[in-house]
Nucleic acid binder design. Structure first.
Length: 885
RNA sequence: GGAUCCAUAGCUCAGUUGGCUAGAGCGUACGAUUCACAUUCGUAAGGUCGCAGGUUCAAACCCUGCUGGAUCCACCA
């Protein structure tokens, strides 16, 4: 016997994964397709294809619990479609994670007493490359430990040559289409990391601040205008004071100038909608170089932009010698003091406002004027919206489609420049003489020469989302003019939190580059929260490592555990308890298999399997429905039923329900009832066939234990991963129905016995005899009933009923127990009568309503009538029992 | 300010076009045990489905309002 008495995942998982990989089963053709070719020369010859990509985890990082969920979902889909016989391609990836990795690297640089400024960009790039190569591999091992059946030879790294080539091609196309422009705009600049960020990369936090009122004297007048500001230090960059055009208080001041305090400049008073008469004093200072709204006001009124804060977060020369070089905080303090001394500070009050922070280092983001590359997104967004509205992509959850459309409608131009060395270089060179920019892909050179003219490379790199928005295109090797059955992807599975950052951009880019949407369906998963519904975070100390779970309980247990109770788009709690119950299921299945193998061994002997028996066994669908044991018809029906459910659930991404369906099939139906019946009947071919079907159905969710069992069974061949999804079992529906009745009799017997034993100390259930009247069902199955109900014997009454009659409609059954035992049970009986009475009342109420009888469907009314009749006869019987006591 | 989602047993969640006498797992209580499995088996208790209205023969489900919670977007001089 190969089966140990319990399943030890750690002993099997690494070998099994290696066996799959060695057999090339992860390639899209697999062994099923035979040729391992991506696709046939004639696409009509091909089976259906199924493609899915892995959102690339950070190449030099470790997987967190969210990756665990990602892989559990994606690999279940992959394995399911592979078993269905589709050419399934799950493409793994690794992300250079531009900013993330850069932050980690810069930290190690600083820890060694260096700074980024000591090196050229090319040197830094080379250093990080080496750093990442050293760290790489960890993540890939972890993806394997989770059982991901992805095609490793197709792994795409976000800096791979073909990715860069594709990104450059797109950029060039955009450049030629006039969608790329260089502009000096306000960008979210982190003074610590020295780089710009996209809007979605900054975190807004509510903070306590102060609102100061500052008087600006009106030129050639004794009047003054008081502005409200939270950032007095930006005063040096003021170029106007704005008031609302409707604001009567200031109407006559518009067009005049004010003296800008602490400086010798005069700035105009302008009228602009931006000024809210209700807020503060209704007058607002305009600083286009350091505030987004002011920037727009400046555009409208063609005002100059005066930058007064440097990239290092210190005040520039143009603020005057007293202020230049101060940090913004120092400058604010000094400016307020000076204003107060000048008698211009008129008030100060507390307020809470939201402030942008760097999502990585929490430094306050300084809106800063910078020359950057921008993508004009109007056309991209418009096309994306059109295709979304035409329902070309199905969303799970469905509501996110509209959310995405709303986002695209308000999308601003996309700043794609980042001041980080670690990334794909922007392929633009500038003629230092003329200032002209040209496109060139020779980004390995910092300078190039064309027709004797010298061009210098832009030092910036692309926003990672610009390259990763090509992900479905580059992973599937899509090429213009070639047929590619794997593009568009069947599904894009990723976190709901990157709907805007990534999904939106992949759709825009896919449409722009290929003219087609990049995927047919989007499944978004929510955040994995801790057991108490809290976000996992290092500072809270509630972070769970998926690999720890795998080590402790096994990969399958983790996968089933994390899928449980989870639905699309929802942030849901994760509890270790679900993993424990997943582990228990694996062990249960293991023992079921162990038991079945032992029966096979007893009857055949493992060595003596003849070719003839093999034929019988390998025919998974028995031609004739099983006879004799009705439990066999029943389990065949239940397995079919479960399989149909799983097929429909998988189509709708209801993974949690599939796990639930399988759990109940394996445990509550197969092990608790069917295998119990087989202790008497031992229909070996059917035991084998049903076990095989269950292993296949569970394989997508618990790949390791199912494969481990498959390998340990004496009669199976090949790898489970490469088998075919089961088809229908034949069965006799009447037998199946009868077995269910038998189950009902057994449960009721057990429950009554339990009631008796609770009411009577020392009562022995196992010594009790069950008597039956005129009942062919029980008569035919007395041995089975005796075994399942765990009674001493099941025999006919022979016309002499005695003991306690069971309250079952259509069956005359008695537990042969003394009257004293029964009388102690009277209270339980009384409760039962009351509860059935309540059910009967509610049914009668319904029938007494003439509208119900009139308007409800006839079948439903009929069913209610039948139910009432049943309940009435049941209550009658219970009352008789009570009388008898 | 705009939007989306959520509220069902002690806990975590199912409940697909209204037909429910509202389910599961865990937990709890009681009982079993040389049986493939104590990672086991059996039985049971536990719920005015957030609140208030409405539509309907019928509402956990549809509509309106409210309360509480989560998330996203925008704004906050």
């Amino acid at each position: 016997m190969k089966f140990a008495s319990s399943y030890e995942p750690g002993e099997y998982e690494p070998d099994i994964y290696a066996a799959w990989e060695a057999a090339d089963e992860f390639l899209p053709g697999g062994k099923v397709g035979g040729d391992n070719k991506l696709y046939d020369d004639n696409p009509n010859n091909d089976p259906k294809t199924y493609s899915i990509v892995m959102p690339p985890p950070n190449a030099n990082g470790n997987l967190h619990i969210g990756h665990g969920l990602t892989i559990a979902i994606e690999d279940s889909l992959t394995r399911y479609h592979r078993l269905r016989g589709e050419k399934t391609w799950y493409i793994p990836g690794a992300d250079h994670a531009g900013f993330e990795t850069w932050v980690v690297y810069e930290r190690t640089l600083e820890a060694n007493g260096h700074t980024r400024f000591e090196y050229s960009r090319d040197e830094l790039y080379a250093k990080v490359w080496d750093f990442v190569q050293e760290q790489r591999g960890n993540m890939e091992l972890q993806v394997r430990a989770l059982g991901a059946s992805c095609s490793w030879k197709d792994l795409t790294f976000t800096l791979d040559e073909n990715v860069v080539r594709r990104v450059y091609a797109t950029f060039e196309k955009m450049w030629q289409d006039g969608m790329i422009y260089r502009g000096e705009k306000l960008v979210n600049f982190c003074p610590k990391h020295q780089t710009a960020f996209a809007d979605i990369e900054v975190v807004h936090k509510d903070e306590k601040g102060k609102l100061w009122d500052i008087a600006y004297p009106v030129v050639d007048s004794d009047k003054e205008i008081i502005v409200s500001t939270t950032r007095p230090e930006t005063l040096f960059g003021d170029v106007a004071v704005a008031v609302n055009p409707e604001d009567k208080r200031y109407k006559d001041l518009v067009g005049k100038s004010v003296q800008l305090p602490l400086t010798d400049r005069e700035i105009p008073i302008i009228a602009d909608e931006h000024a809210d008469p209700e807020y503060g004093t209704g007058a607002v200072k305009i600083t286009p170089a350091h505030d987004y709204d002011d920037y727009e006001v400046g555009e409208r009124h063609e005002l100059p932009r005066i930058q007064v804060i440097g990239l290092d977060g210190r005040m520039l020369e143009n603020c005057g010698s007293e202020y230049a070089g101060l940090t913004t905080a120092e400058c604010r303090k000094k400016a307020l003091k000076d204003l107060e001394e000048a008698g211009l500070l008129r008030g100060e009050k507390d307020l809470v406002h939201s402030v942008a922070h760097c999502y990585k280092c929490d430094t306050v983001i300084e809106p800063t004027l910078k020359e950057q590359w921008f993508v004009d997104v109007k056309r991209l967004a418009k096309t994306a919206i059109e295709h979304l509205e035409a329902d070309e992509i199905k969303f799970y959850p469905a509501s996110r489609k509209q959310v995405l459309i709303n986002y695209l409608e308000g999308l601003k131009d996309w700043n794609i420049s980042r001041q980080i060395p670690w990334g794909i270089a922007i392929p633009m060179f500038r003629n230092m003489e003329t200032g002209e920019w040209i496109f060139d892909t020779r980004t390995n050179l910092s300078e190039i020469e064309i027709h004797g003219e010298r061009y210098v490379r832009d030092e910036d790199t692309f926003d990672t989302w610009f390259s990763s928005s090509h992900w479905p295109i580059v992973c599937t090797n899509w090429e213009e003019g070639e047929i590619n059955p794997y593009y568009p992807l069947n599904v894009m599975e990723t976190g709901a939190d990157i709907l805007f950052a990534w999904v939106a951009r992949m759709i825009m880019m896919g449409l722009y580059v290929t003219g087609e949407v990049p995927f047919k369906e989007v499944y978004l998963h929510g955040l994995v929260l801790d057991a108490h519904g809290q976000k996992m975070s290092k500072s809270k100390g509630n972070v769970l490592n998926p690999l720890d779970m795998v080590t402790k309980y096994g990969s399958d247990a983790f996968r089933m555990g994390i899928l449980r109770g989870r639905s699309a788009g929802m942030n849901q709690a994760f509890s270790e308890q679900s993993v424990v119950s997943g582990r228990n299921l694996c062990n249960k299945l293991w023992n079921v298999a162990r038991f079945i193998q032992s029966i096979v061994d007893e009857n055949n002997g493992p060595e003596e399997i003849t070719e003839a028996t093999k034929d019988v066994i390998s025919d998974i669908v028995p031609d004739e429905p099983p006879t004799e044991n009705m439990g066999e018809d029943w389990i065949c029906r239940e397995i079919n039923e479960a399989r149909w459910q799983i097929e429909s659930q998988m189509e709708h991404y209801r993974f949690a329900e599939s796990v639930e369906t399988l759990y109940s099939l394996v445990w509550d139906k197969y092990a608790d009832w069917f295998v119990e019946t087989e202790k008497i009947y031992k229909n070996i071919p059917l035991l084998q066939a049903t076990l095989e079907a269950i292993l296949k159905m569970l394989h997508p969710f618990a790949p390791f234990v199912t494969e481990a069992i498959w390998q340990n069974l004496s009669w199976t061949e090949g790898l489970l991963i490469a088998q075919k999804w089961p088809s229908d079992f034949k069965y006799d529906p009447i037998s199946a129905e009868n077995y269910e009745m038998l189950m009902n009799i057994v449960s009721h017997t057990r429950s009554t016995l339990q009631g008796l034993s609770e009411a009577n100390k020392g009562f022995s259930k196992a010594d009790t005899t069950l008597l039956y009247g005129d009942d062919s069902l029980v008569d035919d199955n007395s041995l089975l009933v005796q075994h399942l109900a765990r009674v001493k014997s099941v025999i006919p009454t022979d016309g002499q009923p005695r003991g306690l009659r069971l309250a079952l409609a259509n069956h005359e059954l008695y537990l042969d127990v003394p009257e004293k035992i029964v009388s102690n049970y009277a209270k339980a009986l009384e409760e039962k009568i009351l509860s059935v009475g309540r059910e009967l009342d509610s049914l009668n109420m319904r029938m007494m309503n003439p509208n119900y009888v009139d308007k409800a469907p006839a079948a439903l009314v009929e069913e209610t009538r039948k139910l009432i009749a049943e309940k009435e006869s049941l209550i009658e019987r219970l009352k008789q029992e009570r009388e008898a006591i």
